[in-house]
Deep mutational scan, measured.
Amino acid sequence: MTFKLIINGKTLKGETTTEAVDAATAEKVFKQYFNDNGIDGEWTYDDATKTFTITE
């Protein structure tokens, strides 16, 4: 399955996707992406659209 990440950061904005077997696996991938890029904020997940959103 394809999961999308929408980034609404102070310095970084955009979208990316990842292929994962489930939302929990995608969450781990995206959290690592947050850490690697110094993004910290509030994030949500919409199961209907398989979209994670992080807002700094």
Results as ranks from 00 to 15, higher is better:
Glu27Ile: 11
Ile6Leu: 05
Glu27Ala: 09
Asn37Thr: 14
Asn35Leu: 15
Glu42Val: 13
Ala20Asp: 02
Val29Thr: 08
Ile54Phe: 15
Glu27Arg: 05
Thr25Lys: 04
Leu12Asp: 09
Trp43Asp: 00
Lys31His: 06
Asn8Val: 12
Gln32Val: 08
Asn8Cys: 11
Phe52Met: 00
Thr17Asp: 04
Glu19Ala: 09
Ala23Gln: 09
Val21Lys: 13
Gly38His: 14
Asp47Met: 07
Thr11Asp: 12
Glu42Lys: 07
Phe3Arg: 00
Lys50Tyr: 09
Gln32Gly: 07
Asn8Tyr: 11
Thr17Asn: 05
Tyr45Trp: 02
Asp22Ala: 02
Glu15Cys: 12
Ala20Met: 02
Asn37Tyr: 15
Tyr45Cys: 01
Thr2Ser: 08
Leu5Val: 10
Ala24Trp: 12
Gly41Val: 07
Thr53Ser: 04
Glu42Ala: 09
Glu19His: 14
Asp47His: 09
Thr2Leu: 12
Leu5Thr: 02
Ala26Leu: 02
Phe52Ser: 00
Thr55Met: 05
Gly41Cys: 07
Trp43Asn: 00
Thr18Phe: 14
Tyr45Glu: 00
Leu12Cys: 15
Asn35Pro: 04
Ile7Glu: 01
Tyr33Val: 04
Ile6Cys: 05
Thr2Ile: 14
Glu19Thr: 14
Thr16Lys: 14
Ala23Ser: 09
Thr2Val: 13
Lys4Ala: 04
Lys50Leu: 13
Lys4Trp: 08
Glu42Leu: 11
Phe30Asp: 00
Glu42Trp: 12
Asp47Gly: 07
Asp40Glu: 13
Asn35Gln: 13
Trp43Thr: 03
Asp36Lys: 09
Glu56Trp: 08
Asp36Val: 10
Lys10Arg: 10
Ile54Met: 13
Gly9Thr: 15
Asp47Tyr: 05
Val21Leu: 13
Ala20Ser: 08
Lys31Met: 11
Thr18Trp: 10
Asp22Gln: 01
Lys31Ile: 12
Asn8Ala: 06
Asp40Asn: 12
Met1Cys: 08
Ile39Glu: 04
Lys28Ala: 12
Phe52Arg: 00
Gly14Ala: 14
Glu56Pro: 07
Thr55Trp: 12
Ile54Trp: 15
Asn35His: 14
Glu42Thr: 12
Ile6Gln: 04
Gln32Cys: 06
Gly14Thr: 14
Thr18Asn: 04
Ile7Pro: 00
Asp46Ala: 02
Ile6His: 06
Trp43Gln: 01
Gly41Phe: 14
Asp36Ser: 09
Glu42Gln: 09
Glu15Tyr: 10
Tyr45His: 00
Glu42Asn: 07
Trp43Ser: 01
Glu19Gln: 14
Glu19Asp: 06
Thr25Gly: 08
Ala48Glu: 12
